[in-house]
Design a protein around this nucleic acid. Structure first.
Lengths: 205, 205
DNA sequence: TGTACATCAGTGAACGCGCGTTCACTGATGTAC
DNA sequence: TGTACATCAGTGAACGCGCGTTCACTGATGTAC
């Protein structure tokens, strides 16, 4: 058995894990401080030794989520280099992969209602994540003739919106809104068509 | 003053309006039955004369929302006829216009957690709305050579996802996630690039 | 037109519940000597 | 090695709150005669 600290060992982490499970199961609304504490085998009051309160716990989950998210995006970007096209496509895949593999984090980040500017630390790590997408978009856009080149921020926004929409509508157990296509295929095809529209992929490719 | 019914006149409608205002202001979480009743100038218990409970009230709001949404989509579609391209683009605009003009309805429909299959009536009206988009996509796709034509359901899914993503990320007062572009422009440009990618708009147009 | 009656929308009090948060405390762990 | 002490993570009881929902009721409105 791993070394334990004072009493519980690593309650902070245990609370984060418990809260993640609850968020995954019941959505951001279904999560309560008390239940997370109970899941971690601890009194609700104990939570206050590690977090300022409910919102602080959610914010910490979001922060960890953005951290992982940014790492994945950066890794994907590097994987695609030196091709700016491959890098761009890889970040798109990474987005969806993150949402699938870390649904609780994703919810805490985008649906929990906590502000991305809640703390400077949170804002910074979120910016790191989005920065990767923007960088990939900026480099890719250099391949477009200047006269028909949309602002790179615009087209990273497009990819982000498409990815987010696919996640929300089709990648979740969202009741009643099922697609006949796997979300991965849907997103990949969508980005492919989009890039063709920008003239970045050959029409017959 | 308009004719009043028994006591309140039209409490059912007043409750829906009150709930809509609350949802717009505070999100789906912030809405409570008691507060909606209070806003309508009535005791919480009175709500049960008109709705089975909290969820039933939300579902009714979603139903009305889908009704309006479907009407707008159909109107937009008709406006674009006989050009399938114009019809398709018009439904895209209608999507965003609806989300902007009826934010409370939009939230009740897509973010409240109520299932689209809660009642057959709700499922039916939702299907009517999405059916317009699918029809527009199907007609448009006839202009694409069969060998490079993606399934029309796929491409209505793309437009839906892009629209939803733009709404969620950029069209709302979502804290911290602002785009330097108006959501309308963002969506229009995105759909334009996408249609170019499908070969439905000339590259130089 | 006036009276007696039926209807039923809305009242007001009450309920049980779980929430987030506070507080003085306890007792296991780590540390100094 | 053993003892006295300090630390502080977690306890347990309590709080005030607003929630959704129920119930017997009341009294304004509509209707029959």
């Amino acid at each position: 058995m791993a070394k334990r600290g004072y009493h519980h060992g690593d309650l902070r982490r245990a609370l984060v894990d418990a809260a993640l499970n609850l968020i995954e199961e019941k959505g951001p609304t279904g999560f309560t401080l008390s239940e997370a504490a109970k899941l971690a085998g601890v009194t609700p009051a104990a939570v206050y030794r590690h977090f300022e309160g409910r919102d602080d716990l959610i914010a910490e989950i979001a922060r960890q989520g953005f951290e992982t998210f940014a790492d994945l995006m950066e890794y994907a970007y590097d994987t695609g280099q030196p091709s700016s096209l491959a890098s761009f496509e890889a970040t798109g895949h990474a987005y969806l992969a993150f949402a699938r593999r870390h649904p609780g984090h994703y919810v805490a980040m985008f649906e929990s209602g906590i502000s991305i500017n809640r703390t400077p630390e949170l804002a910074q790590v979120a910016q790191r994540a989005f920065g990767v997408l923007e960088k990939a978009a900026a480099e890719l856009s250099k391949n477009i003739p200047p006269d028909r080149r949309p602002p790179p921020q615009m087209f990273s926004a497009h990819v982000w919106a498409l990815s987010h929409g696919v996640v929300e509508l089709f990648a979740r157990g969202a009741p009643g809104t099922k697609s006949p296509f796997p979300p991965e295929d849907l997103l990949e095809a969508g980005i492919g068509i989009y890039l063709r529209g920008l003239g970045l992929i050959d029409r017959d490719e």
